[in-house]
Design a protein around this nucleic acid. Structure first.
Length: 583
DNA sequence: GAAGATTAAA
């Protein structure tokens, strides 16, 4: 029967279950746990629970099956609730029960209960169980109690390679790479997981050199070993090393492609992200997953590549990510919003059944950034009403919406509500928003007061905002104050002097303007005019804003016009004929 | 029955 259950489908499971009911077998000590386990794996978890509840006197194995079912779905609170019931029903846990329950305590960070369970396990004679020991080490390491973890480790009679891995991982979690390495060298057996753990430990602590030399020492490597170093290089933005590893690796899975894509994204090679994704679809023998699609969509968002993004959307739909995957949908919202397709972004948002914090943040920030301030604030209200707790990112969007609409009162009210109602400490971004809001409204004195009172130190961006506003509103004292601060923060930036000197000029204070010019010259730096440049066959060509210095300006203007028309034609064609391969 | 990975928002 258990062989049957292993390869069972949903339909078959129901048939078998019906048969067990007919014959009263669900109460059978042997059949009961297997049916529950199969339901946990195949059906919805609440159905499994109903099957469990129907068993009048479940034995310990039935309880264990249900615990494991919940744990596999990350429902740790349910594990613990059920464990309480088991204890009150006077069913004795066995050596299979304790590790899974302990894991639940680890996952919800309940150290006290975990320790109680440890005492319980010692009293009931499971002290030397290596499965339990491994979980205890993990629990203490996660809580930062590395000494307790080590105590459990050294008191364990039977240590195997999993135990050693758990201990080494504990040291890595606590950033003690020296001890981790000592235990690694001491371990009587080293399997591939242990090697990979040690390599990624070095990577996590930023020691790519050591990671690489350990990787090179590995007696055998699996695809995950290769992926680990690939991602290590991706994280530090060493794209050449990434590409070398990618070419060199003997086998590639979806994580390998995702790692390569991440590498390009990390070093801002956005069009290469798209190229790599195309290659993956065409030549990689792998299926993209939600991580792939979200990374690619994020690149589309940054590039404004709406057409490509739409195709990624289709691709994801075909793979079945559309209905269930909130990550995919969140990335879609961002992509559509950043590409200016706000309505589509809104549609996607509305189509999500279980929105998470990121869904709300993405749409609110997207709306705010595109001047749909009213809608952003409406959604913020809706978000609060539906019981989702806003975080600091939400408030960046909310304040940004107020700034766009010039809602001084509301902006200040939201800013205050952030710390009083939601216990969020304002960050520099929030403060910058408020300073900008006040500055644009011409409330410069209030802006200065705000800067003096705000919980973080003002940065150059904030002072520049104020300096700019003081030019618009001709408030020379504020401008002088801003420049004074700016000179401290970025003494090498001559643009600051130019700004204040222009203010003096506007007010006819030419002596002061000249004095500043001298001060600027004394810094030894010269403000360069804003310039764009492009590399051509003849070398670097510079373009100044609305400048006509280039000898071929007329030709350039004409070609630009033609290109615009050409692009327009291309867009139309693309609509009709989407790229092959890309479905 | 215990140990190994990636993703989206400012």
């Amino acid at each position: 029967m258990s062989a049957l259950i292993v390869q069972m489908t949903y339909k078959k499971l129901l048939q078998i279950q019906a048969q067990t009911l007919i014959h009263g077998l669900e109460q059978n000590d042997y059949v009961g746990p297997r049916i529950v386990a199969a339901c946990c794996r195949i059906t919805r978890i609440d159905y499994a629970r109903r099957v469990f509840d129907a068993i009048s006197q479940p034995n310990v194995s039935v309880w264990n099956a249900m615990f494991n079912g919940y744990a596999q779905k990350d429902l740790y609170r349910e594990v613990l609730l059920l464990f309480k019931r088991m204890r009150s029903n006077d069913v004795m846990p066995n050596c299979f029960t304790l590790p899974v329950v302990l894991k639940a305590y680890v996952m919800i960070n309940d150290l006290r209960q975990g320790e109680e369970l440890q005492c319980f396990s010692i009293k009931t004679g499971f002290r030397s169980n290596s499965y339990l020991g491994t979980k205890l080490i993990e629990m203490y390491s996660c809580a930062g109690l590395i000494a307790s973890a080590n105590k459990v480790f050294s008191e364990m009679v039977e240590k195997n390679v999993v135990t050693w891995t758990s201990m080494i991982n504990g040291y890595i979690l606590n950033k003690d790479l020296v001890s981790a390495r000592r235990f690694f060298d001491l371990s009587p057996e080293r399997d591939i997981v242990l090697w990979n753990t040690m390599v990624s430990g070095y990577i996590e602590t930023g020691n790519m050199m050591e990671a690489r030399s350990l990787f090179d020492l590995m007696p055998c490597k699996d695809v995950m070993s290769w992926n680990t170093v690939l991602e290590g290089y991706a994280n530090i933005g060493d794209i050449e090393a990434c590409e070398r590893v990618f070419v060199e690796m003997p086998e590639r899975n979806v994580f390998s492609w995702n790692g390569m894509i991440k590498g390009y994204a990390q070093s801002a090679r956005l069009s290469q992200v798209l190229d790599c994704f195309k290659r993956m679809v065409v030549e990689g023998n792998v299926v993209a997953n939600d991580a792939t699609l979200t990374s690619v969509l994020s690149a589309c968002a940054k590039l404004g590549a709406l057409e490509f993004g739409k195709r990624v959307h289709k691709h994801g739909e075909n793979l079945g990510y559309d209905n269930v995957n909130v990550n995919f949908k969140n990335a879609l919202i961002d992509m559509y919003a950043k590409c200016g397709a706000i309505e589509t972004a809104m549609e996607v948002f509305r189509s999500i059944k279980r929105r998470d914090l990121i869904s709300w943040n993405t749409i609110i920030n997207g709306l705010a950034a595109h001047g749909h301030g009213t809608e952003a604030l409406d959604l913020f209200r809706e978000m609060k009403n539906s019981g989702i707790r806003p975080d600091k990112v939400t408030f960046v969007g909310v304040l940004c919406a107020c700034r766009h609409m010039g809602l001084v009162e509301d902006g200040l009210a939201y800013f205050n509500s952030m710390s009083t109602d939601f216990l969020i400490t304002p960050q520099i971004e929030h403060c910058g928003c408020v300073v900008d809001l006040l500055s644009r409204a011409g409330l410069l004195t209030q802006a200065v007061e705000f800067i003096n009172k705000m919980p973080v130190k003002a940065d150059a961006v904030i002072w520049t905002t104020l300096l700019g506003a003081s030019k618009v509103y001709k408030k020379v004292e504020v401008g002088e104050l801003a420049l004074e601060e700016l000179v401290k923060l970025e003494p090498r930036n001559p643009a600051n002097f130019v700004m204040l000197s222009n203010i003096y000029g506007d007010l006819g204070r030419f002596v002061d303007a000249a004095r500043l010019k001298v001060a600027m010259r004394d810094t030894g730096f010269k403000k360069e005019a804003g310039v764009s440049w492009i590399e051509t066959d003849d070398g670097l060509v510079k373009f100044y804003s609305s400048g006509e210095k280039h000898p071929q300006t007329e030709d350039l203007q004409r070609i630009l016009k033609e290109l615009k028309n050409f692009n327009f034609l291309l867009d139309e064609e693309e609509e009709e004929e989407p790229q092959e391969h890309f479905i």
